[in-house]
């Protein structure tokens, strides 16, 4: 049992080291929620809803609990006559804490649940208490997993930054457009072919749109 605890602690230390490297405050470079928010405000004032929505979404990824981001994003969407986006149940989980705190909560829940389940097998005299501890750990882990499930679609979505982007049935220009995406719309992206990206709207319509008119929310460094 002691050996198991040692292994768990060393694994936690590794996770902490890796996470600290990602979340450390660095003076230059990197992404800042405030910088994305200010940039989005500038685009909103310049009447560029696509780029404004894009940067608000990026700011929301870094700081999902910022009410200013949500308010200005809502206003830009309304100004651009975009349909309102209803928050899902899982989205509420992202509001509980910062992404980093939710990550640590999930890890703590995993350690608690795992250790309790192992101890329960070993110490039959305290099976009830250990089962309760395991349930608490699973709940914490579930919060983190729920937040991850809520954010996951955003990481594979893009914002339409072009004006009235035509979506075609196949990735060639000679095809007649199926429908038109308004600027600022958020779409799920799939395959990419020859300058076109397979997109799927919230309404379930899909087609190929020029990749130059789309910007991935989770940009890669």
């Amino acid at each position: 049992m002691i050996r198991i605890a040692k292994v768990a602690l060393s694994a936690a230390a590794m996770v902490f080291t890796a996470a600290a490297a990602d979340t450390a405050s660095v003076p230059t470079g990197g992404y800042s929620a405030a910088a994305f928010y200010n940039l989005a405000n500038a685009y909103a004032r310049a009447n560029k809803p696509g780029l404004a929505v894009l940067n608000y979404e990026r700011a929301k990824l870094l700081d999902p609990r910022d009410p200013d981001v949500a308010a200005n994003l809502l206003r830009v969407r309304q100004s651009a006559s975009l349909p309102a986006v209803s928050a899902g149940r899982l989205d509420r989980l992202t509001q509980l804490a910062s992404p980093t705190a939710l990550s640590w909560i999930g890890l703590l829940g995993l350690l608690l649940a795992g250790t309790a389940m192992l101890a329960r097998e070993k110490f039959s005299a305290h099976r009830g208490k250990l089962l309760l501890s395991a349930l608490v750990g699973f709940c914490l882990l579930g919060v983190s997993a729920g937040a991850a499930m809520a954010v996951w679609p955003t990481l594979h979505s893009a914002v339409v930054v072009g004006h009235s982007v035509e979506v075609r049935v196949s990735p060639v220009l000679i095809e007649e457009p199926l429908f038109v995406l308004p600027e600022g719309e958020i779409v799920r992206v799939g395959d990419e072919h020859d300058g076109f990206v397979l997109v799927r709207t919230r309404a379930g319509r899909s087609g190929w749109a020029p990749s130059s008119n789309l910007a991935l929310i989770a940009l890669q460094r």
């Binding site: 990602d22 405050s25 990824l61 937040a147």
Partner: peptide, 21 residues
């Protein structure tokens, strides 16, 4: 619009939340 925020020096290396990295 709500006003701009003061930009601090805190930076993240990725837009992907830690729990999805």
């Amino acid at each position: 619009h709500r006003p701009d925020h003061a930009v601090t020096e805190a930076r993240a290396n990725s837009l992907v939340p830690l729990y999805l990295r």
